[in-house]
């Protein structure tokens, strides 16, 4: 067993885990933050995307001990508890950018990362290219792309859209 300590959604957390524990398992099974999903478990689908020190990463392809001391943000940490949704979450709701919802947390975490890297004015090509690491089996992506363009614009005016 190995001791891990990191900051998750602004809170210091610790755990005593088997070295094989992936970050996504630590989040879901030890911290009970089940918003981050395991889809393919092969680093292709993006359902497990979280932010590690402000950068989108696949938590199914990272050992918990590799992010010792890091700052992790999950879908649960994007907005304040019981407060308004993050503008990207709101844009997904407004644009009906989900059907089954399984890919949504990863989509939104990737979307926020795209805005941080590419700015608030995103064209369709950029969004589609940048979403290559997130797979949705239901929607055909059309509304996801619309939501991200809208969410990106909304983030420009939102105090919640600060970089990590």
């Amino acid at each position: 067993m190995t001791a891990v300590a990191m900051t998750v959604n602004g809170k210091a957390v610790t755990g005593d885990v088997d070295p094989r524990t992936l970050l996504v398992q630590f989040l879901r099974e030890h911290l009970r933050l089940t918003g981050t999903h395991v889809g393919c478990d092969t680093s292709q689908c993006g359902a497990c995307v979280v932010h590690i020190d402000g950068k989108a990463a696949k938590s199914c392809t990272t050992f918990a001990w590799q992010v010792q001391g890091a700052n992790i943000t999950t879908i649960e940490g994007l907005a304040e508890p019981n407060g308004p949704l993050h503008p990207m979450q709101e844009a997904f709701r407004e644009n009906h950018a989900l059907q089954c919802g399984y890919c949504t947390p990863g989509m939104i975490m990737s979307a926020v990362d795209i805005v941080w890297r590419k700015g608030n004015d995103l064209d369709e090509n950029t969004i589609r290219h940048e979403l290559e690491g997130n797979i949705c089996r239901c929607t055909g992506y059309h509304n996801i792309v619309k939501a991200i363009a809208a969410g990106a614009k909304a983030m420009e005016k939102s105090p919640m859209a600060k970089t990590a």
Binding site: V49, A57, K58, T61, I114, E130, E132, G133
Partner: peptide, 9 residues
């Protein structure tokens, strides 16, 4: 290479 999340690691 890969996708944005893969390129971050």
């Amino acid at each position: 290479i890969g996708d944005p999340a893969v390129r971050h690691r």
